[in-house]
């Protein structure tokens, strides 16, 4: 299980990376916005994408749309972890095909719950 973590703040990438490690996911790669993330995804081998929304260059929502419109990536599970909390944004992410939505600041338990839920759905 290889996970790509996308956030423009390195602190947040480290937090997510360490939480994932704690959950038993040790194989992670990082990118600081959608533009750098997309080539990594296109190269293949990523099983799960955790992304922020508000990033310079390419935002998380655009990355999500790019992923869903690429036949090789369309089924990739995507968890959005973001400070964007407007209802219309959450709805927009849902319509774009996000698999889970966590708002910052979040707890370790929340992240764990959402990730487990996503994997349950995939397996079940």
């Amino acid at each position: 299980m290889k996970i790509l973590i996308v956030d423009d703040f390195s602190t947040m990438r480290r937090i997510v990376k360490n939480l994932l490690k704690d959950l038993g996911f040790t194989n992670t790669v990082e990118a600081d916005d959608g533009k750098t993330a997309l080539p990594i995804l296109e190269k293949g081998g990523i099983d799960f994408l955790v992304t922020d929304w508000n990033m310079p260059g390419m935002t998380g929502i655009d990355l999500l749309k790019a992923v869903r419109s690429n036949p090789h990536l369309a089924n990739l599970p995507v968890l959005m972890v973001t400070a964007e909390a407007k209802r219309e944004q959450i709805i927009m992410a849902a319509q774009a095909g996000v698999n889970g939505y966590v708002i910052k600041p979040f707890t370790a338990a929340t992240l764990k719950e959402k990730i487990e839920k996503i994997f349950e759905r995939i397996e079940g």
Binding site: W53, N54, A85, K86, I91, I103
Partner: peptide, 28 residues
Amino acid sequence: ELPGPVVPGVDDKEGDVATSQVDVDDLL
């Protein structure tokens, strides 16, 4: 264009933001 982090008392007056993860989960 993005509203960014919700600051309590500033951005949540209109009632159009999710103020907790529970709100997000309910909406979804």
